[in-house]
């Protein structure tokens, strides 16, 4: 029921964020116009980690209390998280080419993001290896929880290794070192990404549940209802 609302707000925010990011925000004094890719890069990087934590938490909830919805939710998270991770990596390397002069460097943050992508892929592979959905959900939840130790490593890698990647510019508590005109579109974009994720994940979970319960009575009732109303 929430889905249409979420998708409309998401579309609005996405347009606002893109406008703000691509047109309104002033060009960077060092990087010129090409810094604008952060409006896709940074939100997707945030989302990639956020989704993983969410997925592992949902998996854990499903594991402990045997809640089917949580299992389904965790399963629907994985491909989305993987695509966010991939997007972050792809936009990052597109940006890296003119800025650092190379597509890829073996820097800690990039590497951690790549590991995160592998974690997602492993999770999905394990998920699809089982025939029984319940066993699949619980087994991969264990894997997601084990992989969760990787999230702090990703987050603190910037501090631990001295690297080429620029430090975080937004989450510094005292004063963000990013100009406010650039920051606002970025935050809007982040919000838009988040809503996008929730929209898609809800749709995916719904499909998943319908598919799983396709033999039960309420699903056939629902199908009959829609057919009658047509």
């Amino acid at each position: 029921m929430l889905t249409p609302w979420l998708s409309w707000i998401c579309a609005l925010l996405l347009i606002a964020g893109l406008y703000g990011g691509l047109i309104y925000a002033p060009p960077d004094y060092q990087q010129g116009e090409s810094f604008r890719i952060i409006y896709v890069h940074v939100p997707s990087a945030w989302m990639s980690m956020f989704v993983y934590v969410l997925m592992a938490t949902a998996g854990g909830v499903g594991l402990i209390w045997h809640i089917k919805i949580a299992e389904v939710f965790a399963k629907s998270c994985a491909p989305l998280g993987a695509s966010f991770t991939f997007l972050a990596l792809a936009t990052g390397s597109l940006w890296g080419k003119p800025m650092w002069g190379t597509w890829w460097v073996w820097d800690a943050r990039l590497t951690s993001e790549l590991i995160l992508l592998f974690l997602y892929l492993g999770y999905m592979a394990l998920q699809s290896a089982f025939d029984d959905r319940r066993v699949a959900a619980r087994a991969s939840a264990v894997l997601a929880l084990v992989g969760l130790i990787n999230i702090p490593i990703i987050h603190y890698s910037v501090e631990w290794w001295s690297t080429l990647h620029q430090g975080a510019t937004v989450t510094k508590l005292d004063a963000p070192s990013i100009h406010i005109d650039m920051l606002i579109p970025l935050l809007i974009m982040a919000l838009a990404f988040k809503l996008y994720f929730f929209t898609i994940v809800l749709i995916r979970s719904r499909t998943e549940i319908l598919e799983y319960e396709c033999n039960s009575k309420w699903v056939s009732d629902l199908l009959n209802e829609t057919e009658v109303s047509k």
Binding site: I115, F118, L119, G147, N150
Partner: peptide, 13 residues
Amino acid sequence: MLLSLIILPLYMP
């Protein structure tokens, strides 16, 4: 194969 897939990322750190 699956074992290597899930395990190698966990080994990287």
